[in-house]
Amino acid sequence: MKAVMLGLFLALLWSLAPVKARIAVAPMIIEPEQVQAGQVLAVHCQNRSEEPVEVELALVLFDQDARGKVVLLEDGESVTLVERFLSVEPRYFVLPPGASQEIQVQVLENAFQHLYAALLIKPRQNGLHSRLAVLLLLSGAEEEPALGLSSWRRRDAGVSLRVENRGGRHGSWAGELLLYDGQGRLASTMRVHSGLVLPGRSRGVRVSLPGWVEQVEVRSLAPGGER
């Protein structure tokens, strides 16, 4: 009787134990050149755990803050807007251990200059929750980025730069720091990359400098950049 009770107790504990659901997703960023209505963008999802996993999907918009970081816009208005342009299939699926599923994001219409959306992939699980956000960077065929250095200044042991995108498409800025020593000689150069900047947004970039640097100049290398 004792053994049966112990068995039942262990079975109860087992049933209450949280299910670990680990999925792997690729790609992380989708950036098609020219988006057409009807175009399908594929995302692959694989179950890397030893139990079946239920997976839920959602589409939201995203923006970029002054540090260049993604800001997910999950309010009702943003969701309604993104679903006017994109659909996802399937919305929900169950993956056996080791199995894969292709998720299809379809462009319903391309009447936009640019659309920055995130596909949120969430395994249903007990305990803590996790999501993987695949970023979709979509822009019309005619759009181009226009990146420039809006400001820069030397501060402490580094240089702070601000890169602005005045164009209609995302892009990244590349530049070069010219480093002069105490005798005013150009002693070294340093490449700088801004990372992606969304249209109408700017982002800060901070670069640490070697201690011997006395004077700095910044030169843009990217097309559309300004000195």
Binding site: V25, A26, P27, M28, G127
Partner: peptide
């Protein structure tokens, strides 16, 4: 090779009992 990612969380996160006016820290 595609860019890909995955995450694995701990099962549970328990702060335990705490008195009013007290702060408690836990690392996940």
């Amino acid at each position: 090779i595609l860019g890909g990612f995955s995450i694995d969380c701990s099962d549970l996160f328990i702060f335990g009992a705490v008195m009013p006016g007290q702060s408690i820290e836990e690392t996940l």
